[in-house]
Design a protein around this nucleic acid. Structure first.
Length: 624
RNA sequence: GCCCACAUAGCUCAGUAGGUAGAGCACACCCUUGGUAAGGGUGAGGUCACCGGUUCGAUCCCGGUUGUGGGCUCCA
């Protein structure tokens, strides 16, 4: 802590914040200091508001207040104006070490700060609620407070020395919302105010512009504009309906996945959407996962049926359908199974978080000796997909158990955890796949590799998991007869490299901004007749191209050609094929690319061959 | 689930100090047959999300419901 405050302002020095993120120290100080300035402004304007915590984050900062009335947009304007006054007063930030008693006296009216002090004194957590690494397990002997102007806050710092280091026009309060104290919904509700903050007004403007761009790429907006999917009140929240264009995307993705899985030795199966309660009791989903499941249907005879939230128990049944020999392993069962999960209403988010989802699911049953190769095979499958889709930014996380959760969150078998975690770690190192480790993030039955990807607009989410299951096969009495004649329990690898159709297509929409590569585009080409007399020829060419496997439309509407080009352009159709007298005479089409490039007339056959070649190798380019 | 905000034509949005609504785009029809991002005209479209309350009268005010958005939390 002390060393931190002593560091020189330097954009080269990175400081950690949040979970596993870093930002330049200088920026951290500006943002953190602005959080304090905001707290001062808020407590001045709303004396009943009690400050709790306020850290720097990705693009700025926030501060949570305990207050009887939420902040209105007008309040934010007043607070921001007051902050600007404080910043312009060029006040010092003064650090002071205080004793526990003094700290308790200073914050005696603020139960949240007192709770933080309790934590700090015990050495358990710092003011962000995170483990203190510096203090080890010893209690923090010294507490620090920072004072600027009239406001004093419990804080480990560091801060700017004086608010003149903060540009008064490089920050902006953007929104208020609620948050729970310590992120726990059992705790009191706090009001959080978010602010953006940078070194210069230009950086702030740039950020705002990027956000504007991001809104344009939002899959919810593009999904509606491009007629990919829709929601309907009478169908229900979180239940997407795929429109014809979305249907094509799904068909193409499934075709790709089936081909890849066939090459990798998977067998395709299909299983029911509803099942008796007993299956999920055996799998451990009931009652453990009951919260995320739709409530059961009770039949006349009292039997309860559930709609499936996962495919695995069915695949286990398929494994168990006959005796297995080590010669049968690895057994790889794949299914694009539709699952239903009862996500909390507040969790639903476009296609990214839904209640009905089609999973690119498979389970691999293998022996311990086969594990490494199988696990790596799956990871490599991921990497192949990333290449096809041009996904360059991704992070793999090895999610481990935590001893504290054994028997509660996690299957109570520490040695097996350590062993399987090491197996995964070794497989990843063996394959030279970079990853980082995170404790207490595992599935209840085993460790996993989570793949985080980032859509073009910076939205981060878990695309896929690759999980090791050392517990559930035993619950299903899955066995194989090994070489030595002994019955053994196989390991099971759960994997879903493309996650779900819903999330993956949501991601792809943002990744490509709706401009899908030719192999994936719902409509690949639109034929545009210049005059009515060219329509017949267009229809003939369309039939020809469809026979070649292309997805083609003819725009025979009454508008002018320019208007049709514009419509096709807005629909992000890769190829616009303009047809006039010249083309009709020479069995040609005039090719215009979505990029705006005019490639002039060329023979229909040549165009078709060119596109077919691009499609066959899943090319991202429009023309080569 | 919780806190806050929002809900007007297929879409994007105006509007009414409470007297049942309007534009642009899209759609239909007519004219125009035009060579690489919007030709012109005419017309049709709305129980102002739903259910209650206040009022002579509610799209507008109040309450509830549903949905959506921004967060908290969790996950594919």
């Amino acid at each position: 802590m002390n060393q931190l405050s002593a560091l020189k302002d330097d954009d080269e020095v990175m400081i950690a914040y949040g979970k596993g993120k870093r930002m330049p120290l200088a920026l951290y100080k500006v943002r953190h200091s602005l959080a304090h300035v905001m707290a001062q402004a808020v407590t001045e304007l709303f004396p009943q508001a009690k400050p709790t915590i306020g850290p720097p984050i990705e693009s700025g900062f926030y501060y949570d207040f305990y207050t009887p009335t939420p902040f209105t947009p007008q309040d934010l304007e007043r607070i921001e104006a007051r902050m600007r006054e404080i910043v312009n007063k060029h006040v010092d930030f003064v650090r002071r070490e205080v004793s526990e008693a003094e700290a308790r006296e200073l914050f005696k009216d603020n139960p949240f700060k007192l709770e933080l002090i309790d934590g700090l004194v015990r050495g358990a957590a710092d003011e962000m609620g995170e483990q203190t690494s510096a203090a080890g397990d010893g209690a923090a002997s010294v507490l620090t407070v920072y004072t600027q102007d009239t406001f004093t806050d419990l804080c480990r710092g560091p801060h700017v020395n004086n608010t003149r280091e903060i540009h008064p026009d490089a920050f902006k309060l953007v929104q208020s919302s609620s948050a729970y104290w310590r992120g726990d919904e059992k705790n009191p509700v706090l009001q959080r105010i978010y602010g953006l903050a940078f070194h210069t007004p230009e950086e702030l403007q740039h950020h705002l512009k990027m956000q504007e761009e991001a809104r344009k790429r939002d899959h919810r907006k593009l999904g509606a504009e491009l007629e990919i999917f829709m929601f309907d009140d009478e169908v229900g929240p979180g239940l997407p309906i795929w429109l014809p264009n979305g249907g094509v995307l799904i068909e193409q993705l499934e075709a790709l996945a089936k081909k890849m899985e066939e090459d990798a030795g998977y067998l395709r199966v299909r299983t029911p959407h509803v099942t008796k309660e007993a299956l999920f009791v055996r799998s451990g989903h009931l009652p453990y996962y009951a919260e995320s499941m739709f409530p059961p249907m009770t039949l006349d005879d009292g039997e309860r049926y559930y709609i499936k939230p996962m495919n695995c128990p069915f695949h286990h049944k398929i494994y168990a359908s006959k005796p297995r020999s080590y010669r049968d392993l690895p057994l790889r069962l794949a299914e694009y199974g539709t699952c239903y999960r009862f996500e909390q209403s507040g969790e639903l988010f476009g296609l990214m978080r839904v209640r009905s989802m089609q999973m690119n699911d498979a389970h691999i049953y293998c022996t311990e000796e086969q594990f490494e190769a199988e696990f790596l095979g799956v990871v490599n499958l991921y990497l192949k997909y990333f290449e096809i889709f041009g996904i360059e930014k991704y992070v793999m996380r090895l999610s481990l158990h935590a001893d504290a959760g054994l028997g509660k969150k996690y299957v109570d078998n520490r040695p097996l955890w350590l062993k399987t975690e090491e197996m995964v770690r070794r497989a990843m190192r063996q394959g030279n796949v970079p990853f980082y480790e995170a404790e207490d993030e595992a599935a209840f039955y085993g460790p996993k590799i989570d793949v985080q990807i980032y859509s073009a607009i910076g939205r981060e989410f878990t695309l896929a998991t690759n999980q090791v299951d050392f517990a559930v096969p035993a619950r299903f009495n899955l066995t194989y007869v090994d070489r030595d004649g002994q019955e053994k329990t196989p390991l099971c690898i759960h994997r879903a490299p493309l996650g779900t159709h819903e999330r993956f297509i949501g991601f792809l929409i943002e990744h490509f901004a709706g401009a899908f590569p030719p192999w994936l585009a719902p409509v690949q080409a639109v034929l545009i007749p210049i005059a009515d007399r060219h329509v017949e020829y267009c229809q003939r060419v369309a039939r020809q191209l469809r026979a070649e496997g292309m997805r083609v439309l003819v725009d025979d509407g009454p508008e002018r050609m320019q208007n049709k080009i514009r419509k096709a352009q807005l629909s992000k159709i890769p190829y616009m094929l303009v047809v006039g007298d010249k083309e009709v005479q020479s069995e040609a089409v005039s090719v215009r690319l979505r990029s705006g490039e005019d490639l002039k007339s060329q023979p229909v056959g040549e165009f078709a061959a060119r596109v077919k070649a691009l499609v066959a190798r899943y090319a991202l380019a429009l023309w080569e």
